[in-house]
Design a protein around this nucleic acid. Structure first.
Lengths: 104, 104
DNA sequence: AGTTTGTGCAACTATTTAGTTGCAGTTTCC
DNA sequence: GGAAACTGCAACTAAATAGTTGCACAAACT
């Protein structure tokens, strides 16, 4: 499962979505429930949840007539591993270039 | 140095900026140099570099009259560590909640 | 000195997106 | 059956942003 990396970052690049994620970190919740303790409308939150779902960061869970969302920490950890690998690769390459430059 | 996390993700949530980062991963380059091998104007790239600099992902380096940019892999690794910690914390909390629910 | 090359600034366009309100459809509960 | 509570869809507004072009300025080279 190699989710595309960019949409995940785009999803994480918004304060409101972090507020939602922080709230979900304390337990599953529906868009309506989240809207009650946040300064934005239910529909706005529903859209954000859709984006987060598209990024694989949350998943919907039906509970009776309400639709709760569960946070997926594993996806975040997986993203972190890929980020770390990319950063390390950059530093490795640049160190190699510096090495070659010094040998001239 | 605790850079704010959200701008970093916002910076990474764009395909063009990833292209720029990929190019810089092979060595420092100026906005003009990058514009020659990319399908966007120099000014567009300059703006992207400004965003990346604001996020602490690149740093400017003066070389004569040109302004090259160097990629900072360490910032990416630092971000990765924080991401991983957050993801792990979410999973830990949700596991605890599940545990409590089962004990009822 | 004059030409080239690279950067910086400003104005403008177009697309995306975060947010809203309003209404229709369903499931649950009394 | 009927009211209440959630969800889903659609249209709209406002702000942010990715992109452009044009021009002015400074440093380097011949």
């Amino acid at each position: 499962m190699t989710t595309t990396l960019v949409p995940v970052f785009a999803a994480l690049g918004d304060d409101t979505r972090w507020s939602i994620l922080a709230a979900l970190g304390e337990g599953d919740a529906s868009a309506s429930a989240l809207a009650e303790r946040m300064p934005v409308s239910r529909q706005a939150i529903a859209k954000h949840l859709s984006v987060l779902h598209g990024a694989g960061l949350v998943e919907p869970v039906r509970v009776g007539r309400e639709l709760r969302y569960r946070i997926l920490g594993a996806q975040l950890s997986a993203t972190a591993r890929r980020l770390d690998a990319i950063g390390a690769e950059w530093d490795r390459r640049l160190a190699a270039i510096k090495q070659i430059a010094e040998e001239l």
